Amino acid sequence: MRLETKGLSCGYGRKTVVEDISMFVEGGEVLCLLGANGSGKTTFFKTILGLLEKQAGQVLVDGRDVEGWSPARRARLIGYVPQARGAVFPFRALDVVLMGRTSHLALFASPSEEDVEKAEEAMAMLDISYLKDQVYTRISGGEQQLVLLARALAQEPRILILDEPTTNLDFGRQFLVMERVKSLSRRGLTVILSTHFPEQSFFYANRVLCFRQGRPLGLGSPSEVVTRENIRAMYGIDVRIISLDARQGGLKLCIPDSLVGCVQKRVS
């Protein structure tokens, strides 16, 4: 399923945060958003989801403008994993994941056994079945993030939007989540995610969209867009991009210039 924006501008009231973003991502692809805090990535996501009213432009799914779609219609197609936030009510983790089935239920209907099975399958996919009966407000921030991802997977969306999905996760869980996300894209899911780790774009993304102060800085393959110049423009830091293999667009690392000498000495 293709997700596309054309000249999308969005913000809060009269304040424009994101301006003139045109991009697309196809089913089976991962589009990675890079940009400093406050550059507009979350605002962009919320506008695609219909949580914020757009100021200009279009959001299209398979060529159809989604303006006027009901929240339920969007929810049946688009899953969303926000940055983890503390919950107000002490739900069980399984109950939080079950909320992802809401768009599949009739008005006032209760979750069926099948819905519970879908929720449990989503938790098993992320190796968090042990959290099923634990209170969501009492688990760690990283575990909360995994529960929110399971909730989105239980929704069975065609498009998945993830806002910094590896925030608060330990090293192993970061790898687990990104591998699961890439696996889902290989099954045909359309994925857009934001991250503060440029290396993740080299490892997992088909294309990258760079943000700078709410405007597009570049859109293309990781090797085309994740450059020294663009990283300096986004984050204000000089880096060395080091290739780990000889392939064009292969695995790469971004190392701050100030640390390059230290790394080279340790390697030698």
Score class of each variant (00 low, 15 high):
Val260Thr: 10
Val147Lys: 10
Ala154Trp: 02
Val267Ser: 08
Glu113Tyr: 13
Leu77Arg: 06
Lys132Val: 11
Val147Ala: 08
Ser129Cys: 09
Glu143Val: 04
Leu217Asp: 12
Val191His: 01
Asp170Lys: 08
Cys210Ser: 11
Asp245Thr: 04
Glu114Cys: 10
Ile128Val: 13
Phe89Asn: 14
Met1Cys: 03
His104Arg: 10
Tyr235Lys: 07
Ala36Asn: 08
Ser223Ala: 14
Tyr130Leu: 11
Ser268Ala: 09
Ser221Ala: 10
Glu117Pro: 09
Val226Thr: 13
Ile231Glu: 15
Leu148Asn: 13
Ser194Thr: 14
Phe171Ser: 03
Arg138Met: 06
Gly86Asp: 13
Gln174Arg: 15
Ser183Ile: 05
Pro111Cys: 12
Phe108Asn: 06
His104Gln: 05
Ile237Lys: 11
Leu162Asp: 05
Val30Ala: 02
Ile159Trp: 05
Arg101Tyr: 00
Val147Leu: 11
Met123Cys: 12
Ala56Trp: 09
Ala154Thr: 08
Ala56Val: 09
Leu49Arg: 03
Gln213Met: 08
Arg151Asp: 12
Arg73Ser: 12
Ile192Gly: 00
Gly63His: 04
Ala154Gly: 08
Val225Arg: 00
Glu179Pro: 12
Leu217Lys: 09
Met23Tyr: 09
Leu52Met: 02
Glu199Cys: 08
Asp62Thr: 03
Lys252Ser: 14
Thr227Gln: 12
Gly27Phe: 04
Val88Ile: 09
Glu19Asp: 08
Phe203Cys: 02
Leu34Asp: 08
Met23Glu: 04
Arg207Tyr: 09
Met234Cys: 15
Thr42Ser: 12
Thr5Asp: 03
Phe89Lys: 13
Ser201Lys: 06
Lys6Thr: 03
Phe24Tyr: 14
Leu126Met: 13
Ile21Thr: 06
Pro111Asn: 13
Leu244Met: 08
Lys132Glu: 14
Ile241Tyr: 15
Ser223Pro: 00
Val66Phe: 00
Gly100Ala: 01
Tyr204Leu: 04
Gln144Arg: 15
Gln264Met: 14
Leu169Cys: 10
Leu253Tyr: 01
Asp62Arg: 02
Gly11Met: 03
His104Val: 00
Phe175Lys: 14
Asp133Glu: 12
Cys262Glu: 11
